[in-house]
Simulated scan of single mutants.
Amino acid sequence: MRALLLSMALLLTAALFPAHAQAALPGLTEGVQYRAIDGGQPYQALPPGMVEVAEVFAYTCPHCAHFAPTLDAWAKQLPPHAKLVLVPGVFGRDDDWARAFFAAQASKSLAVLHPRLFAAIHETGELPRNADRAQITAFAGKIPGVNAASFKAAMQNDAALLPKLKYAYEFSARSQVEGTPSLIVAGRYLILGNSYENLLANARAVVNALAPKKTAPAKAAAKPAAPRS
């Protein structure tokens, strides 16, 4: 099956990995809420102080399809210092489903097409899991709100897409992703959990632990004493 196992299975193997003292988070326990990623880096460059929550997903993964609406609602409640970033799983040098994600981004139709691709595979049966590039392109072109010509051109733009596919693949590899959906916070913490709710609760706990430190307000300088007469 092209879709990887659900990342909650990582909880069962977390005990096999040593602790990473340098990545320890106050109030949290490695192997329970997260697993530290040696040498991990975020998927995107964000402004200083911002924390990335990257979801590695696959359109063909039924768990990802079920998780998507919950994740979307959760992301809207994130604090100002955190941002959700979607990363398609790449299962081969030229994965057509991952290509469709990046083509949707490039044609400014991701918000419309992202949920429709999940539904087409897992609800309506309009697309098979092994759909090829032509089938995906034909389906997308019929969706209201999608510029069919722009999407088709983006799907065929190897010069733009192949580097993105390679970069997404490398991110998943260095983040030690073993299943979808997977959440990686700040590129350094692979989130663990035994349910969707637990996964999101642990992700939020890590996000909170990485919140920018608040600086204490400077004390006002003492006023000089008035001269005595």
Score class of each variant (00 low, 15 high):
residue 120 A to L: 12
residue 156 Q to C: 00
residue 45 A to N: 14
residue 144 P to G: 08
residue 150 S to N: 13
residue 41 Q to T: 15
residue 167 Y to M: 13
residue 212 P to Q: 05
residue 109 S to H: 03
residue 12 L to P: 00
residue 192 L to K: 04
residue 139 F to M: 12
residue 94 D to Q: 13
residue 224 P to S: 13
residue 117 L to T: 13
residue 29 T to P: 06
residue 96 D to R: 13
residue 8 M to A: 14
residue 57 F to G: 01
residue 228 R to S: 15
residue 39 G to T: 07
residue 104 A to R: 11
residue 7 S to H: 11
residue 55 E to H: 11
residue 92 G to A: 05
residue 114 H to W: 11
residue 159 A to Q: 12
residue 37 I to N: 02
residue 211 A to R: 11
residue 5 L to V: 14
residue 225 A to N: 10
residue 146 V to P: 09
residue 63 H to G: 06
residue 224 P to E: 08
residue 177 V to S: 04
residue 28 L to T: 02
residue 196 Y to P: 12
residue 17 F to V: 15
residue 24 A to F: 03
residue 86 L to Q: 07
residue 96 D to L: 12
residue 72 D to L: 12
residue 21 A to M: 01
residue 34 Y to F: 05
residue 220 A to G: 01
residue 150 S to E: 13
residue 39 G to K: 10
residue 138 A to P: 07
residue 177 V to E: 06
residue 155 M to D: 01
residue 34 Y to K: 03
residue 155 M to T: 09
residue 16 L to Q: 15
residue 225 A to C: 10
residue 10 L to V: 08
residue 157 N to D: 15
residue 198 N to E: 14
residue 145 G to M: 11
residue 146 V to R: 03
residue 171 F to K: 10
residue 174 R to I: 06
residue 58 A to R: 09
residue 33 Q to N: 01
residue 168 A to T: 04
residue 123 E to F: 06
residue 169 Y to I: 03
residue 3 A to H: 13
residue 75 A to E: 00
residue 4 L to F: 04
residue 129 R to E: 14
residue 32 V to G: 02
residue 109 S to N: 02
residue 121 I to Y: 06
residue 200 L to I: 00
residue 39 G to E: 03
residue 137 T to P: 06
residue 182 S to D: 05
residue 74 W to N: 00
residue 136 I to M: 10
residue 185 V to E: 05
residue 155 M to L: 10
residue 25 L to H: 01
residue 51 V to K: 11
residue 50 M to N: 08
residue 110 L to S: 12
residue 208 N to E: 13
residue 19 A to T: 14
residue 158 D to G: 07
residue 92 G to Q: 09
residue 30 E to H: 03
residue 197 E to V: 03
residue 119 A to T: 14
residue 29 T to H: 13
residue 213 K to R: 14
residue 32 V to Y: 04
residue 28 L to H: 00
residue 107 S to P: 07
residue 181 P to H: 06
residue 3 A to F: 13
residue 129 R to K: 15
residue 157 N to E: 11
residue 132 D to K: 06
residue 22 Q to N: 15
residue 21 A to D: 13
residue 39 G to P: 01
residue 82 A to P: 01
residue 64 C to F: 04
residue 208 N to M: 09
residue 117 L to F: 14
residue 111 A to F: 09
residue 223 K to A: 15
residue 114 H to G: 07
residue 79 P to H: 00
residue 91 F to L: 05
residue 184 I to G: 04
residue 135 Q to V: 05
residue 86 L to A: 04
residue 186 A to K: 09
residue 125 G to I: 08
residue 199 L to F: 06
residue 167 Y to H: 15
residue 78 L to P: 00
residue 227 P to H: 11
residue 170 E to H: 10
residue 22 Q to A: 15
residue 190 L to T: 11
residue 52 E to Q: 13
residue 226 A to K: 15
residue 198 N to I: 10
residue 72 D to I: 02
residue 213 K to N: 07
residue 100 A to W: 09
residue 38 D to C: 09
residue 124 T to R: 08
residue 179 G to F: 06
residue 207 V to L: 02
residue 123 E to N: 13
residue 44 Q to P: 07
residue 214 K to S: 13
residue 59 Y to F: 11
residue 218 A to S: 07
residue 62 P to K: 09
residue 46 L to N: 02
residue 156 Q to N: 14
residue 17 F to T: 15
